[in-house]
Design a protein around this nucleic acid. Structure first.
Length: 820
RNA sequence: GCCCGGGUGGCGAAAUGGUAGACGCGGGGGACUUAAAAUCCCCUUCCCGCAAGGGAGUGCCGGUUCGAGUCCGGCCCCGGGCACCA
């Protein structure tokens, strides 16, 4: 690679060469000294909160993907500032969690030493990138001044009955020696380390996010978010409209038990030929007949041994008959009750009515165990008794058959009519079921905020009083987790034993720490108040700055982080602690950066190191290049070769400013292009179309310098402002060169003058039968007759347009189409 | 299987239903230079043609329209997410 930083951009010895390193160092120092990027949060006018997703400070340093996201945020924030807003652009570090801890274990350095080192490196890199960050509000989730309030958030949920403990089958990673959420399991393997995940039964703390499912779903309609992100959340919450239906178990004694199932297809109830309970279902023990007990018991044990994931991925149907039967409330028939692992306890009621005729899974099961299969739905032109060779799941234009008085109804009608009918006898009720599970926040690990709970022999579970927060994470020499499934914190005797806050007797602490997603579920509330010791977030500042005006981040957090943040905010709203339900008014997901057409990864060895590129080209060039790669919301392909074009562009802007003359008048044609550019760049930045904004500026510079013309000062000054969100350092330097003493970011976006931008003569396309046959030049507002006259006079057009046209289509200022 | 994105020159990419390929990279030619670099200018979708010019063209097949990369229907391929969720 040539050394572009030291190569003079032009031969003229009088003008200084553009040396990014010098310029960038100078302005970063000046911004810090003048507190340019630290707004007065209490008094600033027109507050605009530009939030970027805080990074996990890995040992490898800032990823180019982080830089891409931050630059996109920064441009938006700087633009808003030039529009007259007081912009708050904070940064922090999401530094707790298994990822950090595992890495610390691997290199044999305690996380409490390693993480600050990583943060220091990140901070250096973020400074280099020239972000408009208010460093006086920097935070790290690992600081006691932060996690004190993370624990406080836990207590808010606890006091509202939204935090509870239960024994649950969990995913256990034998290598990380910790519990994983379902989200952290990918196809049966640990997302972090790739080990095969196992099942374990452990006591865990959960948040009742499912209570909020309907609101989390409903509010999606009102927030201005990327459609992809909203869709992802909708699918994740996974609402299913259906009904709960009760089946009375037949018995020769006096016991009568009901099995309640959830179904989305109540219209098929006449075809329900058996019931299935999840192996963990509490009624299994109750209803199983003595002669089947051994078989059922054996089957349940077998299921319990299996890990959660392979249970879900293995589609082979297995099960056991309980010996019991239940009455189908629609047909009055007694149908057998089975146990099978294809029914999951955690979804719906943990029991289903099986309709093998119209459900693929039930069909497979019925086939395997020779259970009856009945057709109760028939598509268009299908006979009611047409034999079934597979489950018929078609519902479009299908009607219900073999279903008594309901036969003949279409599927949708039958659903409501049948539920209403069964509801009459109390056998059914319409319900909506959600796929979303409660949020398991327990981690049997060291590197996280201890969950602020104390267990006392006499008082039971006691929350740590607020005045005793934070429950400090003690220094532990050996933080390795072990097979016990208990956090290493349990081995710290002094910390573990604590007097009960209620009775003072010897009690013990909860040893689990909380999920990292809890740390990041409220950090945006902390930023404005990060210097406050007495509150998690100051009410006045929060009212002024939140909800977040603009949040831009990766769609990998489309569900977890963004959903948890919404949930926590909603809870705080209900507790009267914040005035809004939704934390992020506007969210946009940015795209992913690939490199030379391939995904970036350590194993491929094609990861872009931002430091190297900033060394070689300067931060301004790297920033602008990243934004030039492609549409910001779609991502881009980082190609080493193309970066030179962006650097050449900045060189040309630099030279233009240094060459500019102040005498005489600017050129009208150039000024027209300038005003068109002002309008385009402003519009494009607002909609994150950064690549086209840059292209527009390049076009303008090409006009400005065409045929080595010397630009006028009035032609370049606004250009520097347009460029400033993208390349802030060089823009500041050029602004100073132009004689300004204050920061360019204290200035206002150049005023767009529509009169100056207007074109008076335009080229009009002339088509014959829709095919382009020539162009004519005319006044912008020339009427059809005038343009038609010009068109017919054109030899190329005349050749094709013979005789009188049958029809003429005229789009003023654009096109004339002659239909002959 | 289901739900999102996306398929346009040699490459990254632009295009309110109205001149497809702006801008940039790469390539070719030229100016400046003793020379090179840098800079500046011109050309660069494909095919036929010396040229003038003509024809084709936005994953594939059809449709709507004076006119379709853009709208509609049906496919194919690539990327991402979800998936025994009843």
């Amino acid at each position: 690679m040539a050394d572009p930083t030291t190569t003079p951009s032009r031969p003229d010895a009088e003008a200084p060469a553009y040396e990014p390193a010098t310029v960038e160092r100078k302005w970063q120092a000046r911004w810090a000294a003048n507190r340019t990027n630290s707004p007065d949060l209490a008094r600033g006018e027109k507050p605009f909160y530009q939030l970027m997703m805080f990074p996990y400070p890995s040992a490898e340093g800032l990823h180019i993907g982080n830089l891409y996201a931050f630059t996109g945020n920064d441009i938006h924030g700087r633009f808003q500032r030039l529009q007259g807003h007081t912009v708050f652009e904070p940064i922090g570090y999401d530094a707790f969690g298994i990822h950090s801890e595992n890495y610390a274990l691997k290199v044999g350095v305690p996380p409490s030493e390693l993480i600050p080192r990583n943060i220091e490196n990140f901070r250096r890199q973020l400074h280099r990138a020239g972000l408009m960050v208010d460093w006086s509000h920097e935070l790290s989730t690992t600081d006691r001044s932060y996690y004190k309030w993370t624990q406080w958030i836990f207590l808010q949920l606890y006091h509202r009955g939204l935090a509870y403990k239960k024994r649950a089958a969990v995913n256990w990673c034998p290598s990380c020696k910790t519990v994983l959420s379902n989200e952290q399991v990918e196809g049966g393997f640990c997302e972090r380390c790739g080990s095969k995940v196992e099942q374990r039964q452990l006591e865990q703390w959960f948040f009742r996010i499912t209570d909020y499912a309907p609101r989390l779903l409903k509010n999606l309609e009102t927030i201005d978010w990327s459609e992809t992100t909203r869709t992802a959340q909708r699918n994740w919450i996974g609402a299913s409209q259906g009904a709960r239906v009760s089946f009375r178990v037949t018995d020769d004694g006096d016991r009568t038990d009901d099995i309640t199932v959830f179904t989305t297809r109540p219209d098929t109830i006449f075809g329900a030929t058996y019931l299935v309970l999840a192996p963990e279902h509490p009624l299994v023990d109750v209803i199983t007949r003595p002669e089947q007990r051994a078989a059922v018991q054996q089957y349940r044990e077998r299921t319990a041994r299996q890990d959660i994931i392979s249970r879900k991925t293995n589609r082979e149907k297995t099960g056991a008959f309980t010996g019991a039967t239940a009455i189908n409330p629609a047909t009055g028939q007694a149908i057998p009750v089975w146990v099978a692992d294809y029914v999951l306890m955690e979804y719906g009621t943990g029991a289903i009515m099986a309709v093998p005729g119209h459900d693929e899974r039930d069909y497979e099961f019925a086939t395997a165990f020779a259970l009856p299969i009945v057709r109760v739905v028939a598509g268009e032109g299908v006979e009611p008794d047409a034999p079934l060779h597979e489950a018929d799941v078609e519902v479009a234009n299908a009607r219900v058959v073999n279903s008594g008085e309901f036969s003949g109804l279409d599927v949708e009608q039958a659903k409501t009519r049948i539920v209403t009918w069964l509801a009459g006898s109390g056998a059914a009720e319409p319900v909506t079921t959600y796929r979303l599970h409660d949020w398991c926040i327990s981690r049997q690990r060291y590197w996280g905020p201890p969950i602020p709970i104390i267990y006392c022999e006499s008082c039971g579970t006691v929350p740590v009083p607020e005045k005793d927060l934070p429950v400090e994470l003690p220094y532990v020499e050996d933080v390795r987790p072990d097979d016990s499934g208990v956090s290493p914190l349990a081995r710290h005797e002094e910390w573990y034993h604590v007097p009960c806050p209620q009775c003072g007797k010897r009690a013990r602490r909860e040893t689990d720490v909380s999920d990292t997603f809890l740390d990041s579920a409220w950090y945006f509330l902390r930023y404005p108040s990060s210097d406050r010791d007495d509150v998690a977030f100051d009410p006045a500042l929060t009212r002024k700055w939140l909800p977040v005006s603009s949040y831009i981040g990766g769609n990998e957090h489309a569900v977890l982080h963004l959903l948890y943040s919404r949930f926590v905010t909603m809870v705080l709203h209900d507790a009267g602690l914040v005035s809004f339900e939704e934390p992020f008014t506007k969210f946009r997901a940015h795209g992913l950066i690939i490199r030379e057409g391939a995904k970036m990864s350590k194993s491929r060895g094609n990861v872009v190191n931002p430091d190297q590129y900033m060394d070689d080209w300067g931060a301004d060039t790297v920033r602008t290049y990243l934004m030039f790669l492609g549409p910001f919301e779609e991502g881009g392909d980082f190609r080493d070769r193309s970066i030179s074009g962006v650097r050449r562009f900045l060189d040309r802007v630099w030279a233009s400013v240094h060459d500019a003359r102040g005498d005489g008048a600017p050129d009208a044609d150039v000024m027209r292009k300038l005003h068109q550019t002002i309008a385009k760049v402003g519009d494009d930045i607002a909609k994150l179309s950064y690549n086209t904004a840059i292209a527009a500026m390049m076009e303008y510079v090409n006009v400005l310098r065409a045929h080595e013309r010397v630009p006028h000062r009035a032609e370049v000054e606004p250009l520097v402002q347009l460029l400033s969100p993208f390349a802030p350092h060089v823009a500041e330097e050029l602004w100073e060169t132009l004689g300004h003493t204050a920061s360019i970011f204290e200035s206002r976006w150049p005023r767009f003058d529509a009169a100056l931008a207007a074109e008076n003569r335009v080229k009009i396309a002339v088509q014959v039968n829709g095919k382009l046959r020539g162009t004519v030049e005319a006044a912008k507002d020339a009427d059809q007759a005038a343009v038609l006259a010009l068109a017919i006079a054109d030899a190329g057009v005349a050749k094709f347009a013979t005789g009188t046209p049958k029809k003429v289509i005229f789009v003023p200022g654009r096109l004339l189409n002659l239909v002959v």
